[in-house]
Design a protein around this nucleic acid. Structure first.
Length: 883
RNA sequence: GGGCGAUUAGCUCAGUUGGUUAGAGCGCAUGCUUGACAUGCAUGAGGUCACAGGUUCGAAUCCUGUAUCGCCCACCA
C-alpha cells in the first residue's frame, strides 16, 4: 500500500467498477424486502451545491446501509424539467444570440430547450456520481420523459373528469418578470419600507369640497377602483352610503359598500375597492356584485383603462399619479409604512395580483386523507415537529393554480372547438371534437412543474402502466429532503399517492436542515459564500465531504460549515489508511491463524466488546436517523479504540516473538477493523471499498458495498469470549493507570528516552495479581518498568497520581519541583473534598435514600467510598512531600 | 398576529426516556521527526449549560415567564 492515500484516483476507479459490475442496479424480482428512495429530483438546470451534497449524502447512507442489510434496495435518480428555471435559462441564451422565443414560435423554442437539456441537463447527475451516490442509473427519469408525461396527462384528466380540476377567473399571483401565473407557494414575502398613501376622494352631493380619505400602498391601482368600503358598524360613516364618491383622475362614480372585512381601526376605516388587483377586493367585489376593471397589462405596464397613465410602467405611473394628485390637493399625507411585499421566487420582481383565467385543482378533498395519514401515524416526519407545519398547511389549504403561461412544460390536455364552444380533455391529440367540429385548438398553457413532481414516487416506475418495479418499490420508504418544500412537494406527493395509488408514497419523511456559512447565513450563489462541493472533492475527497457534512449536522438542525471543516474528514481518512497500512505490514491476512478464544487478553476483550457496542450504536442511530451520532460512535471506535489503544497494545504481542500470539492478536485486529470498514462504508464508500480490497477481505464479499451489515454479538458469543462489564472496568482502570503515568512524565517534562521505574499501589487487593499479570502490556505504554506493590510507601521525591487502578508513583530524586507538586496535589484534594461534600449532602438526604432507585443510591455510595479513599491517598501523598 | 427552532468551552456544535466529576472537532499551551500516521502522538488549560422562577431526593434535560437571534405561516388596505 502506498504511504499516501490518493483519494482522487481511488474514487474514480471504484465508481467505475461499481457501475460496471452493476452494483447499483436493482432487480424488482430479486430476493429481499423492498427498500426504496426516490431522489428529490434536482432541477435539470442545476449544479450541485452544498445543500444537495448533504441531501444526497444522507440518501446514499440510507440506501447503502439497507442494501448491506439485505434489503432489495433501490435509489431512483432523476431530474425535474423545472419549467420556469429552464425556460429562463434558454431564453437568456437566445437573447445573447439576438433571438426571441416569440419570433421562433413555440415548437422551435421547445425543440431548442430539449437540445439544451440534452447537452447541459446531466451536469448535476455527473456530479452526484462524483459524490459516490449509488443511484440505479438505469432507472434515471426526467419529469418530461414520455412515461412521466403520460402520468401527468392521466392525472389531469382523471381529476378533470371528477371535477377536481376547473378553470376560472380569479385573482392569481402574476409575475410580470416571467409573464406567468404562480401558485401561492411560489411567492416570497419580504418586509420592505414602503409608503401608505392617504388619498382624498371627492364626495358628490355633499358640501362643497367634501372628501373622504382612503389609505393605500398601491395608488397606481386607483384607476381600477369600482367602490369604496366601510365597516357596517363604523358609525362615522353611516351616512356615507347615500352619497356618491368620485374617483379622481378618471371621474368615475364609485359606490359605497359595507363589508365586515374592513377594519375600522386601520387607516381611515375606508378602503378603496379594486377587484382586479387585490385578492381581498376581489372577494368583496364578488360579494357585492361589482365588475372588476383591469388597468394593467401582463408586463405590469398600465393599459388603456388607466387613462392618462396608459403605457407607463406601474411604478412610474405611481410617481406620476401621486404628483398629479398632489397638484390637485388630493393627497392628505404620505406615511412610512413597513409591510410585506410579495416577490416572484424566480425573477424577484414584485408580484402583481392579477385577475385572469387559470386552471385550478380543488385541494380540500385531497387534503383530508393526507391529514389522516399523519393522524394515524402511518406517515411520520423526522423530526416530529414538522407534523404540525404539514397539518397546518393542509388544514388551511387553498386551491392550487396549476396553469403557467410558459412553453416549456406539460401542455394542458384540454381542447377547444370554437365553432361549437366545446371544451374537453383528451389523452390523444384529437382531429375533431366530440361533436365533430374540426376547428380545434389545444390549451396554450402548461402545467406547474410541481404537477409532475407530485407524481414522482409512482410515475418513475412507469405508472399508469403496472410494472414489477411499481409493485415492488411503491410505496417507497424514506423521503429525504429539506423543510422548504414540505408544501410544494411533500404534502402534494402524499395527496397524489393516496389518490392514485391508494397508499401513501413513503412512510418516513426525514427533513434535514439548511447548510449555512460560519456566520449563519444561508449559503447561496448570490451571497458569494457558497462552498462548491466539487472543489471540496478535488481538494479533500468525496468521502471527506460526506463525512464532514454528516458529522457536523445534528438531526434536523441547520449546519454551519466553513471551508476548513473538511479537514476533519481528510484527516480521518488518512488515519484509517495508516491503520490499515500498519496491519498490512504485519503480513498477509492469509497468514493470520484466526483468533483463539482461549488466548483472549483483557485488551482483546475490551476491543471486542467495544466493537459489539459500536455495532449496536451505529445500527440504532441509523434507525433513528441520527446520522451524526452514527458517525461519532464509529469515529471514536476507530480512532480511540482501534488506533490509540488496540494498535499500540498489539505492538507488544506482535513483537513478542510468539508467532501464535501474534497471529491471534492480528486476527482480533482484523476482525475489529473489517467490521469498522463495513459500518463506515455507507458514510465513506470509496476509502472503505479500497481498503476492503487492499486488506484482502474480499474473500467474504467481492465488493464491500455488497457485504453484510454487522450484527451485534449474541449473548452466547459474548459469554464465550468473556466480554463482561468487569473486563471493561478492569481495562479502563489499567488505562487510567497508564494515563496517570504519562501525566506524571508530562508534568515533569521527562524526555521519552528517560526510563522510569513506576510503582503502583493497587486500589483494591484483587488488583495486585491482575495488574501484575498485565505488567508487560502496561509497560508498552509508559516507557519504564512497573512494580505493583501494595506495601509501598513513598519516600523522598516520589510524585504520585491517583488512578482507578491505584496510586501511581514516579520516584525521581532531584528531577522535580516539590513545591509545584504540592500545589497540584492540594488543588486536587480540594476538588475531591468538594465532590465528597456534595455526595455527602445527597447521601444524608432521607428523601434521596427512600425515593431514588436503589441502583442509583448504591452507585452514589460506591462513588462516595472511592472519593473518600482518593482524598485519604492525596493527604498521604501531600504528607510524603513534606507538607 | 400566530407557530417553530436556537441560546452549553475562544469557535462550530453533540448531549437519547431527568441520575457518577457535562462531551467532541477545531483553536490554544507544553513536550515529542517513538518503526502505521506531524493530515500524527502524548499531556494540559478552558464551561456558575442565556436569564428568572417552579416541579423533583436530584434539572443542561421537564413546566412557566423573560431576553436575544433565526425560520415558517397569516388577506390588514
Amino acid at each position: 500500500m502506498d504511504k499516501n492515500y490518493d483519494a482522487a484516483a481511488v474514487e474514480e476507479r471504484w465508481y467505475a467498477r461499481w457501475e460496471e459490475a452493476g452494483c447499483f442496479a436493482a432487480d424488482p424480482n430479486a430476493e429481499g424486502e423492498p427498500y426504496a428512495i426516490v431522489i428529490p429530483p434536482p432541477n435539470v438546470t442545476g449544479r450541485l451545491h452544498i445543500g444537495h451534497a448533504l441531501n444526497n449524502s444522507i440518501q446514499d447512507i440510507l440506501v447503502r446501509w439497507k442494501r448491506m442489510q439485505g434489503y432489495n434496495a433501490v435509489w431512483i435518480p432523476g431530474t425535474d424539467h423545472a419549467g420556469i428555471a429552464t425556460q429562463s435559462v434558454v431564453e437568456r441564451e437566445l437573447r445573447k444570440e439576438g433571438l426571441d422565443r416569440r419570433e421562433m414560435g413555440r415548437e422551435a423554442f421547445v425543440d431548442r430547450v430539449w437540445a439544451w437539456k440534452e447537452e447541459y441537463g446531466s451536469t448535476i447527475i455527473r456530479q452526484l456520481r462524483k459524490m459516490g451516490c449509488s443511484c440505479d442509473w438505469e432507472r434515471e427519469r426526467f419529469t418530461m420523459d414520455e412515461g412521466l408525461s403520460d402520468a401527468v396527462k392521466e392525472v389531469f384528466i382523471q381529476l378533470y373528469d371528477e371535477g377536481l380540476v376547473y378553470q376560472g377567473d380569479y385573482i392569481i399571483n402574476w409575475s410580470p418578470g416571467l409573464l406567468t401565473a404562480l401558485s401561492d407557494d411560489e411567492v416570497e414575502y419580504e418586509e420592505v419600507n414602503g409608503k401608505l398613501y392617504h388619498l382624498r376622494y371627492p364626495v358628490e352631493g355633499g358640501e362643497e369640497g367634501e372628501y373622504i380619505v382612503v389609505a393605500t400602498t398601491r395608488p397606481e391601482t386607483l384607476m381600477g377602483d369600482v367602490a369604496v368600503a366601510v365597516n357596517p358598524r363604523d358609525s362615522r360613516y353611516s351616512d356615507l352610503k347615500n352619497k356618491k364618491i368620485i374617483l379622481p383622475v378618471i371621474g368615475r362614480e364609485l359606490q359605497v359598500i359595507e363589508d365586515d372585512y374592513v377594519d375600522p381601526e386601520f387607516g381611515t376605516g375606508i378602503v378603496k375597492i379594486t377587484p382586479a388587483h387585490d385578492p381581498n377586493d376581489f372577494d368583496m367585489g364578488r360579494r357585492h356584485d361589482l365588475t372588476p376593471i383591469n388597468v394593467m397589462n401582463p408586463d405590469a405596464t398600465m393599459n388603456e383603462g388607466a387613462g392618462p397613465y396608459a403605457g407607463m410602467d406601474r411604478f412610474e405611473a405611481r410617481k406620476k399619479l401621486m404628483a398629479d394628485l398632489e397638484a390637485q390637493g388630493l393627497v392628505e399625507k404620505v406615511e412610512d409604512h413597513l409591510h410585506k411585499v410579495g416577490h416572484c421566487y424566480r425573477s424577484k420582481t414584485v408580484i402583481e395580483p392579477r385577475l385572469s383565467r387559470q386552471w385550478f385543482v380543488k385541494m380540500k378533498p385531497l387534503a383530508e386523507k393526507a391529514m389522516e395519514a399523519v393522524d394515524s401515524g402511518e406517515l411520520k416526519f423526522v423530526p416530529e415537529r414538522w407534523n404540525k407545519v404539514y397539518m397546518n398547511w393542509l388544514t388551511n389549504i387553498r386551491d392550487w393554480c396549476i396553469s403557467r403561461q410558459l412553453w416549456w412544460g406539460h401542455r394542458i390536455p384540454i381542447y377547444y372547438a370554437d365553432s361549437t364552444g366545446e371544451v374537453w380533455a383528451s389523452r390523444e391529440t384529437p382531429t375533431q371534437s366530440p361533436q365533430g367540429a374540426t376547428d380545434i385548438r389545444q390549451e396554450e398553457d402548461v402545467m406547474d412543474t410541481w404537477f409532475s413532481s407530485w407524481l414522482w414516487p409512482f410515475s418513475v416506475h412507469g405508472w399508469p402502466e403496472e410494472s414489477d418495479a411499481l409493485n415492488k418499490w411503491y410505496p417507497s420508504n424514506d423521503l429525504v429532503t429539506a423543510p422548504d418544500i414540505i408544501f410544494f412537494w411533500v404534502a402534494r406527493m402524499v395527496m397524489a399517492g393516496i389518490k392514485f395509488r391508494g397508499e401513501i408514497p413513503f412512510d418516513t419523511v426525514y427533513l434535514h436542515g439548511v447548510v449555512r456559512d460560519k456566520e449563519g447565513n444561508k449559503q447561496s450563489k448570490s451571497l458569494g459564500n457558497s462552498i462548491d462541493p466539487l472543489k471540496v472533492i478535488e481538494e479533500f475527497s468525496a468521502d471527506a465531504l460526506r463525512f464532514s457534512l454528516i458529522t457536523l449536522n445534528a438531526t434536523g438542525q441547520d449546519v454551519r460549515i466553513g471551508p476548513n471543516d473538511f479537514e476533519m474528514g481528510r484527516n480521518y481518512s488518512t488515519k484509517i489508511w495508516n491503520a490499515a497500512r500498519f496491519l498490512q505490514m504485519q503480513g498477509e491476512l492469509a497468514e493470520a491463524q484466526g483468533m483463539d478464544a482461549d488466548r483472549l487478553s483483557s485488551d482483546d476483550r475490551h476491543l471486542l466488546l467495544r466493537m459489539h457496542e459500536c455495532i449496536r450504536d451505529c445500527t440504532e442511530n441509523l434507525e433513528r436517523y441520527r446520522f451524526n451520532e452514527y458517525s461519532h460512535s464509529l469515529y471514536s471506535f476507530i480512532w480511540n479504540d482501534i488506533c490509540d489503544w488496540y494498535v499500540e497494545y498489539a505492538k507488544g504481542p506482535i513483537h513478542s516473538g510468539d508467532e501464535a500470539l501474534k497471529q491471534h492478536t492480528l486476527a482480533v485486529a482484523h476482525l475489529a477493523f473489517s467490521t469498522a470498514l463495513r459500518m463506515l462504508h455507507p458514510l465513506m464508500p470509496f476509502l472503505t471499498e479500497e481498503l476492503w480490497a487492499n486488506m484482502g477481505y474480499q474473500g467474504e464479499a467481492e465488493f464491500l458495498m455488497k457485504s453484510a451489515w454487522p450484527q451485534p454479538l449474541s449473548q452466547d458469543q459474548r459469554t464465550a469470549w468473556g466480554l463482561s462489564q468487569e473486563t471493561m472496568n478492569f481495562v479502563e482502570a489499567k488505562r487510567d493507570l497508564i494515563r496517570a503515568a504519562r501525566q506524571l512524565r508530562s508534568d515533569y517534562n521527562l524526555k521519552p528516552s528517560q526510563m522510569i521505574d513506576y510503582i503502583v499501589v493497587p486500589a483494591r487487593p484483587e488488583l495486585q495479581e491482575a495488574l501484575d499479570m498485565e505488567k508487560a502490556s502496561i509497560e508498552g505504554f509508559i516507557r519504564g518498568t512497573l512494580c505493583v506493590d501494595s506495601a509501598y510507601e513513598p519516600q523522598g521525591a516520589a510524585p504520585g497520581l491517583l488512578s482507578k487502578s491505584g496510586h501511581v508513583y514516579m520516584p525521581v530524586d532531584g528531577l522535580i519541583d516539590v513545591e509545584a507538586e504540592r500545589e497540584r496535589i492540594a488543588k486536587q484534594l480540594k476538588e475531591t473534598e468538594g465532590h465528597i461534600q456534595r455526595g455527602q449532602g445527597r447521601l444524608s438526604n432521607e428523601k434521596f435514600i427512600s425515593k431514588a432507585p436503589p441502583e442509583v443510591v448504591e452507585q452514589a455510595q460506591e462513588q462516595q467510598r472511592t472519593l473518600v479513599e482518593k482524598a485519604d491517598k492525596l493527604r498521604l501523598l501531600l504528607k510524603s512531600l513534606g507538607a
